[in-house]
Design a protein around this nucleic acid. Structure first.
Lengths: 238, 238
DNA sequence: CGCGGGTTTGAATGAGTTCAATCACGGTGG
DNA sequence: CCACCGTGATTGAACTCATTCAAACCCGCG
């Protein structure tokens, strides 16, 4: 719960005490190995998951093996709110890295947020933010060049971890293979590699074994057409 | 309201009487000409709109003029639920065709759905459905070929109008120029034209001045990799 | 030391874009 | 009624960005 609380606290005057009801709910803490599937397409889920640590991906598989990742899920993200209508999931979720999850019964979750209006507002806001991220993903794959896509994604992830860590670093810990970036950005692995090489050649980033160093944020934002407003990181009044 | 009611009624035992509270709310009926902007990026909206007739688009403009349409909005669709958090809109909405809208104050809207739990559930479900459409849009532009994209979109729109009209036609009234399809599918106008020509050559569709005739639905679904499950058209229990 | 997953590089290919010309058609004014 | 116009659709040719396939490379690990 910590990442979620930190993240929400950043935007509104909500503290751990507002989360007590949620924290005391019966729940299971689950540990998943990288690559493990958590929710399968077609499954009916009546749980809500909160990511405690690690990264997950939501994705869809076409019959011929093509995969599209819809979103990276970071600590403090939640899914599947959709489960609150008892519909079948139309996509899968799996662990991108080793992962720790908190699993709550959807009905319990609902009851808890109904107790605490601030909590309800916080989760509504989380959902709004997540939808904005989905929309930006459409723009990224629909209308941006490979270079823009890669740069833009790096910058988005960088901001998103900042939202829960509290400060914006110039290093993005990126614990996933390039094939995940490829399936996220609608490109081939080969082209991801080439594009990263170009960004490195232009001294915009440097890559290490476990992440990306942002060398010139301003210029990277320019070439990537990145404007962080869509992430809705400003303070909100609930 | 009629399209919305018909659409929701199809999935749950909700009738006009559940919508009375909503229908009696103070509201404005607005008529917009095709092309007119309804919500601009950056604007703070505290209204909810329900489409009575005509089509609208949500889209985003990059500085250099590239445009990505996020979604087509059909009669019975609603926006901007996001306004319920008083955030700035991160994209624009405009009329794709001549359009009639019902405009409600967000606070009134909220109060009304709180009165009637079935109504709240219905709108929650509408939101879930809309998010699923967004996700499918990511897959379409991220991992599908031009031919698949075009076919897939035609089939989606066809099902969506069926959801409010009550029956699945083989003709899709498509009152928009190809440039909108292009900006929706992340392709150039020229390529949209070429792709439609190919689909016609394969006798999958025929185009008329105002729409598309689906000649061989089954085969079109195959070549487009279309699986309607993501639209969540099955009956739900609230 | 050798294996294996992931990354990089090269060469050939291909899908989609761009630019420019042509076409089709509905509306307008003479 | 016809000439003209403008918007949108179509076609061709050249080009570009990204893919594919295959080989080489890197590095951590048994």
């Amino acid at each position: 719960m910590k990442p979620l609380i930190k993240r929400v606290a950043h935007y509104a005057d909500v503290g751990p005490r507002h989360f007590e009801g949620l924290a005391n709910l019966p729940h299971k803490i689950e540990v998943h190995k990288a690559g493990q599937e958590i929710v399968s397409e077609g499954e009916t889920v009546d749980f809500v998951f909160i990511i405690e640590s690690g990264w997950a991906i939501r994705f869809d598989l076409l019959e011929d093996g093509r995969r599209q990742i819809l979103n990276f899920m970071l600590p403090g993200d939640c899914f599947d709110m959709m489960s609150l209508t008892n519909a079948e999931s139309d996509h899968s979720v799996s662990a991108a890295t080793n992962l720790t999850l908190r699993r709550l019964k959807a009905t319990d979750f609902l009851a808890a947020i109904r107790q605490e209006p601030l909590l309800a507002a916080a989760f509504w806001w989380v959902a709004v933010q997540e939808e904005a991220i989905l929309r930006e993903q459409i723009i990224r794959v629909g209308r941006r060049s490979a270079k823009e896509r890669v740069g833009h994604l790096i910058l988005e992830l960088n901001r998103r971890v900042a939202a829960t860590s509290g400060k914006l670093e110039n290093f993005l810990y990126l614990p996933v293979p390039q094939s995940l970036l490829a399936d996220m950005l609608g490109l081939s692995v080969v082209h991801i590699s080439r594009t990263l090489t170009k960004l490195k050649a232009e001294k915009l980033i440097r890559t290490t074994s476990d992440g990306v160093q942002i060398l010139d944020r301003e210029r990277l934002e320019q070439v990537s057409n990145f404007d962080s407003r869509y992430l809705h990181l400003e303070k909100l009044k609930f």
